[in-house]
């Protein structure tokens, strides 16, 4: 059983709990994000593999299936993509849900649009959505969407997610390479505390892009996550 194998592998992983609760979610990116969406389709087995298709997480998710539950959040991410984050302003989460538009994940990054990519399901922050998180980071509207997805999928929001998950939201900040030849930034936040990318990004997991150099254990020495925060200082670099 493919899913059984995956589950057996992932159950050792503390990140699984966070996967199950959607504490961290992938964000739309270029091709990789599309692939993550593909993975959801493959796992579900009932949805055509089309990264650009709007996925209904509620239908897709299997509450008893943590991996699928996590994948349902990918769908939610796609749903949110394209919403411009308005840093510093309270966000009406309901409006954000309405404004959510299915977009082509591959096109999002190329267009350079800052996507509203959702926030972790910290129940405290979800209830609080629309307020400004401390340290000046705004909890974006995606949190409300997350909460809905989490409830729909039967996953229990985890109140124990970390400060990073709660206050900093992942972002698709445009092209994922700083310049041609630079390593792409991570297309999603790290799952929980997981440092071992190959745990998921392995050749044995269909649809999830495997790490190109599995012999290199320390992916995050080069590939860094991107939280949705304002720059302190603009940078005038031109590739």
């Amino acid at each position: 059983m493919r899913n059984g194998l995956i589950l057996n592998s992932l159950l050792f992983c503390p990140a699984l709990l966070l996967l199950a609760t959607g504490a961290c979610r992938p964000v739309t990116g270029e091709a990789d994000a599309g692939s993550m969406a593909d993975a959801a389709h493959v796992h579900d087995g009932s949805v055509p593999a089309d990264a650009g298709t709007h996925l209904d997480a509620g239908h897709h998710a299997d509450a008893s299936h943590p991996f699928d539950a996590a994948m349902s959040h990918d769908a939610g991410t796609l749903e949110d993509a394209g919403t411009q984050r308005d840093a510093g302003l309270p966000v009406d989460s309901g409006a954000a849900v309405d404004s959510g538009t299915a977009v082509d994940a591959g096109g999002t990054a190329d267009s350079g649009i800052t996507a509203d990519s959702g926030v972790s399901v910290d129940s405290g922050f979800t209830a609080d959505s629309g307020t400004t998180a401390d340290a000046g980071f705004t909890v974006d509207a995606g949190s409300a969407v997350d909460a809905a997805v989490a409830v729909d999928s039967g996953a229990t929001p985890d109140a124990g997610v970390t400060a990073v998950d709660a206050g900093w939201t992942d972002v698709d900040a445009g092209p994922r390479r700083a310049f041609p030849g630079a390593p792409p930034t991570m297309p999603h936040l790290p799952y929980g505390c997981e440092m071992n990318c190959a745990m998921c990004h392995a050749a044995s997991y269909p649809g999830i892009p495997p790490v190109p150099h599995p012999e290199r254990l320390m992916c995050r020495q080069c590939h860094v996550p991107q939280y949705q925060v304002a720059l302190r200082v603009q940078n005038t670099f031109l590739p």
Binding site: A135, V224, Q226, Y227, L231, R232, N235
Partner: peptide, 12 residues
Amino acid sequence: RRVPELHRAVPE
């Protein structure tokens, strides 16, 4: 902290 990718990776 003036390199966008590095700032967004660890904002604070």
